[in-house]
């Protein structure tokens, strides 16, 4: 896992899992298709990424498919940052 993936994974755990939730998550765990993140609460993830990485993610890039795993999310972030 690279640094972006680590940061996103740690945010997802804090933001979407309850303290007593022992669900194991890694960079390839499905987030949206598994129901952990839904299309409404996904806005919080997008806001975090935009603030953390000083980027603007167009709505069409923040699709349920593109945001389904930490690895995919990190790829979107890296692409928009241009590295």
């Amino acid at each position: 896992m690279d640094e972006v993936e680590q940061k996103v994974l740690s945010f997802v755990k804090k933001e979407y899992l309850d303290e007593d939730d022992d669900t194991e998550l890694d960079e390839n765990s499905p987030l949206i298709t598994s129901g952990i993140v839904d299309s409404f609460s996904m806005v919080s993830l997008k806001t975090f990424l935009e603030r953390q990485y000083q980027i603007k993610i167009p709505d069409e890039r923040a699709s349920a498919e593109a945001f389904d795993t930490v690895a995919k999310i990190a790829a979107v972030v890296r692409e928009i940052r241009g590295n």
């Binding site: 933001e15 979407y16 309850d18 409404f40 609460s41 806005v43 919080s44 806001t47």
Partner: peptide
């Protein structure tokens, strides 16, 4: 909320 121009945020 989606029809509004204001930013959207959510809490648990």
């Amino acid at each position: 909320m989606r029809l509004s121009k204001a930013q959207q945020e959510t809490y648990k």
